[in-house]
């Protein structure tokens, strides 16, 4: 008993240290946001700013429309999440529980496109968006992020693991229509994995870079990620200001994740609690 507690403690210690190490680069980035230009250049580098300053932060907030970029990113990420959750929920259920040959082929196709890197077909996709006149708009951004192969896979796995065929058969025998079964029996059982998928989809869109970079060419249409890249000018990178801008985005998004994580983990755990 005692030995077990000691290994538990050791594991906790190891995981704790590892977790901190994973966060170190981000902590350093936030710390850099409060350093003076002189301190940024000092050797050895400091972890905690000796002489914290808000100059970086104020100059970033005054000189860039950071808030409207965050607004664009938020709209884009939320709509993308909605689209991905809807398409993955239906498609994941169908490919799991309707073992027809056609359906299996379609599922294989879904998975196969996941293999193709986005950059491979980004340019033809850009011309499609252009043809629709959607450049510099949120719907234009959305075109690249409407579906997610992994989402379909995740839902399929969860359906296979947690929804027995008997349950659906019983509902059918009771006279439930297919749509009714999906809506009233399957969906409630998938709440957990769908929430997990929602978080993944949200952050995928939130951190998208290459696609918004070409679809949004107007300053007012930038997402936050593209806006941040602006600080990386061709000539001099002002690391203090870049860090300050990054911190402005990092801190709320990390907080959002930490808050969402509760639902998220509960949701994921709920799928495994059936046994």
């Amino acid at each position: 008993m005692n030995r077990r507690r000691r290994t538990d403690l050791l594991i906790d210690l190891g995981l704790g240290i590892f977790g901190l190490l994973m966060l170190t680069p981000l902590i350093m980035l936030v710390a850099n946001a409060f350093k003076t230009p002189e301190e940024m250049l000092s050797w050895p580098p400091t972890l905690i700013p000796r002489d914290p300053t808000l100059d970086n932060l104020t100059s970033v907030l005054n000189e860039t429309p950071l808030l409207s970029w965050i607004g664009n990113s938020l709209a884009f990420a939320l709509l993308s999440t909605l689209a991905i959750v809807a398409t993955s929920g239906i498609a994941g259920y169908i490919v799991a529980k309707f073992p027809f040959r056609t359906i299996n082929i379609v599922f294989a196709l879904f998975l196969a496109t996941a293999i193709v890197p986005f950059e491979v077909y980004m340019i033809p996709l850009y011309f499609q968006v252009k043809q629709l006149g959607l450049l510099n708009t949120v719907p234009g951004l959305l075109v690249g992020y409407l579906v997610m192969s992994f989402g379909i896979f995740l839902i399929r796995q969860n359906v296979l693991a947690s929804i027995p065929d008997e349950l659906i058969e019983a509902a059918r025998i009771d006279g439930g229509g297919e749509m009714w079964i999906f809506w009233h029996i399957v969906l409630p059982l998938l709440r957990g994995p769908l929430a997990a998928l929602a978080v993944l989809a949200f952050f995928q869109a939130w951190t998208a870079f290459a696609w918004p970079m070409i679809v949004a060419t107007k300053r007012s249409a930038y997402t936050i990620e593209v806006g941040l890249a602006l600080f990386q000018t061709g000539y001099t990178v002002d690391l203090g200001r870049l860090s300050a801008a990054s911190a402005c985005v990092l801190v709320p998004s990390v907080l959002a994740f930490v808050l969402l994580r509760r639902n998220f983990v509960q949701g994921v755990a709920a799928t495994g609690m059936k046994e």
């Binding site: 981000l26 952050f203 939130w206 951190t207 870079f209 936050i224 941040l228 990092l250």
Partner: peptide, 9 residues
């Protein structure tokens, strides 16, 4: 968290 933070920063 490293997976969800923006890549540029």
């Amino acid at each position: 968290i490293p997976h969800v933070v923006s890549l540029v920063p």
